Simulated scan of single mutants.
Amino acid sequence: MEKASVNITLRKDGRYMGKFCIGYDDNGKALYQYVYGRTYNEAESKVVIGQQVASHFLSSRYITVSKVYAEWLNAVVNRVKESTLANYKAKFEKHILPVFGDIPCADLSAGRINEYINQKLADGLSASYVRDIITVFKAMLSYAQDEYGFKLSLKNVTLPKIEKKQIARISDTEQKRLIDYLKANMSLTAFGILLSLCMGLRIGELCGLKWKDVDFQHKILHIRRTVQRITSTNGNRKTKIVISVPKSATSFRDIAIPDALMEYFRMFRDKADLYILSCSDKPVEPRTMQYRYRKILKAAEIENHNFHKLRHTFATNCAEHGFDVKTLSAVLGHSSVNLTLNRYVHPDVVYQRRMINSVCKRL
């Protein structure tokens, strides 16, 4: 006995039996679930409910990583910064989708992901970058489980261990040589380099400074924006400059301006809405500043290094001169004191010896 798409038959014992498909085996053969009722309507009702449950299960069971990725992007687009969204897209489209795109999310396992992690490390990616890829991947999979009701056991996914590399600060000799060169060849670029060395600014924050961010009366610098070049999110793979709020809530901060720098602020002072480094309504972008910095390092006969080393040197200098870590953390715009300690504060052996000797003199 059959009605519409519901398959129901009357058994010899007087009960009605219905069946519906709940999936397929490895050979593609349909698998059925059977239900029973005292009446036709009762059996039919059970079949309809079962079909709905099975349909949801099957759609969840076979939904691919690519499909969920597209849905997940739409879910997060309005709650993350454009630069963060571009970062997500870059990691998925370059690293995750080529490997997992056609695989059903429910088929993923810790073993499969661990194999992927090991391959990425073998390909030469850093442990830190691989961890970032997996973190974003797991965020998408968490969304998939909430949305489609399946469960993945990923507790055995082993993230690669990051080896902490101690970044040496700029030596005292090279710091003096750099400062002497900057003062003898003062320009907006030289001024910007001094700001990062003496106030610990990130390169994007430096490029985002406007003259209205300078409180000349109270000698305070307000950090309110950052400049980044990111991959465009419209799919054309081009890059663009983005001016946005700093990377975190604690990155919004006010920093006391050293007296030694106030003369340069007054020297270059311009209209409030203009960017400090460019003195125009358009900012200098970070990679341009990095390029200019390298030219200055070469001219000053200092070994080439990344612009960010200025910030690291500032933090280490502060720690070595007794700057309390909590205050330093606030100046740097860190979310926690531990971040400051672990990332930037690495007193060298010379400093350690000086501190130990000062203690021993009291004995």
Rank of each mutant, 00 (worst) to 15 (best):
D146N: 11
D146M: 04
E147C: 05
E147K: 13
Y148T: 06
Y148N: 13
G149C: 07
G149Q: 13
L152M: 07
L152V: 09
L152P: 00
S153K: 12
K155Y: 05
K155W: 02
N156L: 12
V157N: 07
L159I: 04
E163N: 13
K165E: 15
K165S: 07
Q166G: 10
R169E: 15
I170E: 06
I170H: 03
S171N: 10
D172Y: 05
D172T: 13
E174D: 15
R177P: 00
L178D: 08
D180I: 09
L182E: 01
A184I: 04
A184M: 08
L188T: 14
T189G: 02
F191E: 00
I193H: 05
L194N: 10
S196G: 05
M199K: 10
M199N: 10
L201Y: 09
R202L: 02
G204P: 10
G204A: 10
G208E: 04
L209S: 03
L209T: 04
K210M: 13
W211H: 01
K212H: 10
V214L: 04
F216R: 07
Q217G: 12
H218R: 11
K219P: 07
I223W: 01
R224F: 00
T226Y: 06
T226A: 12
Q228D: 11
R229Q: 11
T233I: 15
G235E: 03
G235L: 11
K238C: 01
K238T: 14
I243S: 05
I243T: 14
S244E: 15
P246D: 08
A249L: 05
S251N: 06
F252V: 11
F252G: 05
F252K: 11
R253I: 05
R253H: 09
R253C: 01
D254S: 14
D254V: 08
I255V: 11
I255Y: 13
P258K: 02
P258R: 02
D259V: 15
A260H: 14
A260C: 14
F265R: 08
F265N: 11
